[in-house]
């Protein structure tokens, strides 16, 4: 297997992992899923680093493994352990079949939109996959009520951006990519603190707060 084939397989794997995330209603497997997706992304970056002999991409691959495969999933798993009820999406808010179908439909729609609006402007090959991945991340953010699942959606969206940045042959500035990764940790930590506060305040997931209407 040569490098382009490996990159293609890893890219498809990343996309399939996003469809898996959409169809999963337990938070534990979601966290495992996003860690797996990040591992595939790190593999993608590693192959790219090897073919382009880029130290920057290699560092980024290592940073991805450290933060997105190890640290962030660890933080999220601790949350599930601490709050058992949070381990699953509310049944009413999550219909597995519906979400899986919506994810597939969005992937097809994303491909169409990309072909019409973006493909004529972008010369780098393979950029449709991260674009679709970005849309899948947005779908997760917009449709889920569970705080931790929303964090997973946010991570997926950020994975898509790192993926896209890496695809351009001259490479997105490493410094920016690295700080984006660190920024994800910041957002996750804020999310965790806020989710604890939500528990303290006794806000059920997806609750309507009257003061915030209007």
């Amino acid at each position: 297997m040569d490098a382009p084939e490996a990159l293609g397989i890893l890219g498809v794997g990343i996309l399939l992992s996003s469809l898996y995330l959409q169809s999963e209603s337990f938070v534990g497997p979601q966290v495992t899923g996003i860690a797996l997706q990040s591992l595939l992304l790190a593999g993608f970056l590693g192959v790219l680093a090897w073919t382009e002999a880029s130290v920057g991409l290699a560092i980024l691959a290592a940073l991805t493994v450290l933060l997105r495969v190890v640290v962030i999933p660890y933080i999220l798993r601790r949350q599930i352990t601490a709050f058992r009820w949070r381990a699953r999406e509310h049944r009413a808010a999550h219909r597995v079949t519906g979400h899986a179908l919506a994810a597939v439909a969005l992937a097809i729609l994303g491909w169409e939109v990309y072909s019409l609006a973006m493909a004529p402007a972008i010369t780098a090959p393979g950029t449709a996959l991260p674009f679709i991945l970005l849309l899948e991340g947005f779908l997760m953010l917009a449709t889920r009520g569970n705080t931790l699942v929303q964090v997973v959606g946010y991570l997926e969206e950020e994975n898509a951006l790192i993926y896209l940045g890496a695809l351009f042959s001259h490479g997105f500035p490493l410094l920016v990519e690295a700080v984006v990764s660190l920024d994800v940790v910041g957002v996750v930590l804020v999310a965790v603190i806020l989710s604890i506060q939500r528990d303290v305040a006794g806000i059920p997931e997806g609750a309507h707060v009257e003061e915030l209407s209007g």
Partner: peptide
Amino acid sequence: VASVEAAWRYTLIASAGLAVALLGLVLLYQ
């Protein structure tokens, strides 16, 4: 209660929106 919920919405929406801006910057760099 409302302030916790507001902070959460803020984090989520602002971060998601800024991801779109980053996509734009990636394309600009290209």
